[in-house]
Design a protein around this nucleic acid. Sequence first.
DNA 1: TTTTTTAAAGCAAACGTTTTCATAAATAAT
DNA 2: ATTATTTATGAAAACGTTTGCTTTAAAAAA
Lengths: 326, 326
Amino acid sequence: MPDKITIKDIAKEAGVSISTVSRVINGSSPVKKQTKEKVLKAIDKLNYYPDALARSLRVGYTDTIGIIIPNIANPFFATLVRGAEDYLRSKGYSVIICNSDNAVDQEEKLFNILAEKKVDGILYSGIGDHIDKFNQINIPIVFIDRVIKDNRFSYVSSNHYKGMEDLLNYLYSTNHKKYVFISGKKEIFSAFERLRAFEDFTKKYNVEYELLEGEYTYKSGLINGKKIKKIPDVVVCSNDLIAYGVVESFKERKIKVPEDVSVTGYDDIMFSKMFSPALTTVSQPIYEMGKVAAEIIYRLLIKKDDYMPVKLFQNQLVVRESTRRR
Amino acid sequence: MPDKITIKDIAKEAGVSISTVSRVINGSSPVKKQTKEKVLKAIDKLNYYPDALARSLRVGYTDTIGIIIPNIANPFFATLVRGAEDYLRSKGYSVIICNSDNAVDQEEKLFNILAEKKVDGILYSGIGDHIDKFNQINIPIVFIDRVIKDNRFSYVSSNHYKGMEDLLNYLYSTNHKKYVFISGKKEIFSAFERLRAFEDFTKKYNVEYELLEGEYTYKSGLINGKKIKKIPDVVVCSNDLIAYGVVESFKERKIKVPEDVSVTGYDDIMFSKMFSPALTTVSQPIYEMGKVAAEIIYRLLIKKDDYMPVKLFQNQLVVRESTRRR
DNA sequence: TTTTTTAAAGCAAACGTTTTCATAAATAAT
DNA sequence: ATTATTTATGAAAACGTTTGCTTTAAAAAA
């Protein structure tokens, strides 16, 4: 294998010092046109590309952002990540993606790895708060899909409580009397908020309901769907994946949606409109949220002020075919 | 902000040389129990974590793998990536994900970035062949979802031709006479192979058909679905997303699947079984393929021999509700 | 004890860049 | 022409590690 080409080789080839080479690469200070050409020619000839490690070690940043999410195979996060990555790459950043599977200890490990890799910033969506860790590693972070009261931290989230409230009010207004609610893991902020909205709702209208503890997966919907003995007017699911599972479990039992029971989701991932019955759900601007999170971290990085922006998105009820008036 | 803690600080705190600190961190050579304790204590006290950049610069590797795919928001790739990442992380690697959107020039750019970042290996699924580039950057690579005849390169792929052939034979045996085929971009290996199987099929059985050029997206299915004037017996789609789009477009036109027309997909992404009608498709072991690709690159990295493994997966016809005997 | 062997720790170079500071070359001002 | 100013280049330190080699300390053998 051929030896690695370094800036030294270019310098020698072009008959010039390495400082000069560095300067033409980075345009950091003027260099005479004809020497510049020599250098460029040498670079091209030897097929040189600079070592980002060495560079980062020197300059103190890596142009890399870490993203910690539960699971990239969940379309919600895939879309979110895409939103963030598109923006960041346009600004010259790369992205390291880490799946935590919502395990706090795994999250902690990932923070360590990202800190060691010297990422410039972190986008984080997960369970733990890790505040002590953040103080240790001292890397700008923005929380995603979660409201942080600690005003040292930025976040982008959406108004889950309000979204769920809107959905429930709609259901109530269309004559749904008996409810089953399948929650996500309560450690997850969004799941907690949606559940909270549901609990407040049941109190307010003194409505008949059953509460099932699930998690944000298709499988959980499948399992919990089977557990439902008394078919209610509507099964309110804490996210779309759960709803898919519930519908499937009902299909197996020949229970028809929406004829026999309404089913609702949350998130409006791209498949929910294709699902049949097309899912009544609450839409979050997922791609946009990823993008905004990326914008925030970017701003945090370039201007070193203490500006800590925060963005709360509104959610939108979208009524489709999986619900109907009772 | 507090100064960055380096190995030097630990050395001073523990009253020991930096070599010794390095040795206790890496266990690279024996150090007396009691000095080890001092060092560990200092590390803990000062909250030190080593700088992976500096380390990589010295040792010559980064424990990082780059992955280039068209689009992480496509569930096929999300699952694939998850398979790869799970394996790699278990071996101590991190993963940088890059979306190319199937643009050759973007792919090229991404290869450059990954080369500069000194990733140890690359997993690549895309359009271009970039053979010259690979020779330049000299980083182990494994191609995903694509057969490479050049035996200097590894790949994992699946037998798209055979899979499509099986599907078509099944359709033929269930009395489907008139076909519409919606292809993916022909530059993509899998799309090319699936189309090739279809063309051979039409010749072999001299069957009535129409060919529509699409791409691997829901939207493309929607658009091309609308273009279908004469409803055939079956619309064979080059992947599942296209099929979703076609079904949706038919729904708008009150054309019933499978009553009026069969529709098939390819890939069997996780949503296809939840889709209604549940999609008849050809399943690829997506997660497994990602995992195997990761295994291969890992083997390539640890043993520096010239072993160039290659893995071809078989695909499995899965008949569900979106087709029926004519 | 003294010498030999082994184990533990330290020194300093190296990895490939960027950048400060000094110097040389070129241009402008006298 | 000479000096002053600007412009272009080079030398060398620094970023934070690992590791080959040397030295010191400890243990074993004489």
